[in-house]
Simulated scan of single mutants.
Amino acid sequence: MTEPLESLLAALDLTDTGARTSEDIFTGPSQWMPLGRVFGGQVLAQSIVAATRTVADDRSIHSMHGYFLRPGDVNYPITFSVDRIHDGRSFSTRRTQAYQNGLPILSMIASFQDEDEGLEHQVDMPEGLPDPESLPNSADTLEDVEHPVAQYWASKRPFDMRHVPSPIYLSVEGAHVAHQAVWFRSIGDLPDDPALHRAALAYASDYTIMESVMRRHGVAWATPGLKAASLDHAMWWHRPARVDEWLLHTQESPSASGGRGLALGRIFSRDGRLVASVAQEATIRVPDAAKLRD
């Protein structure tokens, strides 16, 4: 197994402290990041794992809503406290707070459900998109860029990301539209545990979703003075999926204003099943932003 995947699995393998007062307490490591800030998707996934540990095995997470409160520091571990808010006949609700140095960095509430049957429908997966094998990966685009963030994105992430129509790492090519798609999968096989794949899907969902806002205004990640940070993240799991198989994340931004941008995402399996939906609002500030408005 490659080092990035080992790092991902180690981060999601939380330690149960054994504390059983009004809350369950877990701890987990912080993955190294080149700028010293914990990746938001990591904290989301760890918070989901912590909550899942307190729920019956036959109940799976189907939705979560989280707020990023402070940037995390990669030099310190993270403590997760889980409040068992409710256990009903079909649903369980949990609140997870992630802490560093005694201060909350993320607050999340999640709902779990027994497997059940009911009405069934979904939107169709977009047609006519190129296959992931025909698209360049991050290493193809960034391996010659010496910046530490570029080097990390090129070879140290546990997921292979392939953009449609093209990445916006260094520049925004083509029309400035408020939508894009990204094929992704883990760079190696993961264990079969469905709960692990749901947590890892949340991890990966945070990588590129705000790019639909940035693409609309021609803002690349390399834009001088760019400041971007996730404010909140919501996710709904509709159907089982494996993150070590190709998944398509379609993304669009309906609005940006007040220094914030809203992005919506849909994640499909390669055979067209809608497996999850995502929503995120982020702060995106660039110098001379007024020049980028309509």
Rank of each mutant, 00 (worst) to 15 (best):
L231F: 10
R95I: 03
L201C: 08
P71M: 00
H86V: 07
A234E: 03
G188R: 04
L274Q: 02
E120L: 12
T15L: 11
H62E: 09
W221F: 12
P71N: 01
I284E: 01
A220S: 15
T93E: 05
V49K: 03
S269T: 15
A290S: 14
P29R: 09
G18V: 04
Y203W: 09
R285N: 10
I105K: 03
P167L: 06
A154M: 04
P165Q: 10
L170N: 09
S166R: 13
L44Q: 08
S253L: 03
Q97G: 08
E281D: 12
K227Y: 13
V286T: 15
S257G: 11
L201S: 06
A222Y: 04
A200L: 04
P224F: 08
F184N: 00
D206N: 08
R216K: 14
D232T: 09
L201M: 15
D13I: 05
L103H: 14
T54N: 08
L35F: 14
S92Q: 06
S277Q: 07
D244F: 02
M1Y: 11
A175E: 15
R157H: 09
G40N: 02
R215S: 06
G88C: 08
I105T: 09
I209K: 01
W236L: 05
A289L: 12
R285V: 10
G66E: 00
D232L: 06
V38S: 01
S155H: 13
S92E: 05
N101E: 13
L190K: 00
H147F: 10
A279I: 12
R285A: 11
D144A: 13
T283A: 13
S277V: 02
R94N: 06
V177W: 06
